[in-house]
Simulated assay, not measured.
Amino acid sequence: MFNLIRRDLILQKRQILIFIPFIAVFIISDSHPALIFLVASIFIPFNTYTYDEKAETNILLNSLPYTRKEIIASRYIGAIVYMGLSIGITSIALFVFDKPFTITDMAIGSGLFLSFVALTFPLFYIFRGKISMVIMIIFILSAIIGPPIVLYLAEHLTTITDFIVSLSIPALYTGVAAVILILYAASWSVTTIIYQRKAF
């Protein structure tokens, strides 16, 4: 299974060469560190799916001595591995550019990435074709209109806002982490079921 994760890195060695310049653009433009960590984490996993859509890789993968559960597990575990690598490289890049960031920025970027993965990975197996382009457009739109929507809801749903503010920082982080992990595990299970029933 870990050979499948390594395969993704090998296949994307050319794309990885543009990873640093890609991240540097966001750093130079003074984007929020959490957004930079999010974008960096998305780079490899979603490039992998885009490549697989073009090359019909699933036919090849199913001819190899791996079960369909292992193939999906490699996707979800791989996403976490790539996230860790991306956060490490991005942290070094931010340090080199003398841009301040915190552990909280890393946590927010990681949480948003895992949530985005959980919501989108099943879509790659439900729909065929150009779904990766649709997902990236949704991601860009979410980054643009998401913050104003959150601010609007925070102002008008005062009961929920007051409850969140009343929580201690450890309780808030623990609760958010638990929700994200449950969502990720549920997505993993759903994607496995979809993939096992898929005909290639």
Rank of each mutant, 00 (worst) to 15 (best):
L141W: 08
F101A: 11
I10H: 02
L141R: 01
A79M: 06
I5S: 02
I27K: 08
V96P: 09
W188G: 09
T158F: 04
P45N: 06
N62A: 01
D8S: 13
F121T: 07
K130I: 11
S168W: 09
L35N: 14
I160K: 06
K99P: 09
A40F: 06
D98L: 15
R68D: 09
R7F: 08
V134P: 01
T67W: 03
L183V: 14
A177R: 09
L172D: 10
S132I: 05
Y195Q: 05
I193L: 14
A199T: 03
N58G: 01
R128H: 04
I18W: 07
I36V: 14
L60Q: 01
L141P: 03
S110P: 10
M1E: 06
A177D: 14
H32T: 02
T161I: 11
N3D: 07
L112W: 09
S166R: 14
S168D: 11
A24C: 12
G146D: 12
K13N: 04
K13T: 04
L167N: 13
E56F: 00
I27V: 12
F43R: 03
T90Q: 14
K54E: 02
S63Y: 00
L112E: 11
I135P: 00
T191M: 11
I23V: 15
A186Q: 10
L141F: 13
A79H: 03
A171R: 15
I72W: 10
S91K: 08
S142H: 02
I145Y: 15
V165R: 12
E53A: 03
Y184E: 10
S31H: 11
D52A: 02
I103C: 05
N3R: 10
S86W: 00
T120Y: 12
M136F: 08
R197W: 05
S74C: 04
F139K: 00
I149C: 12
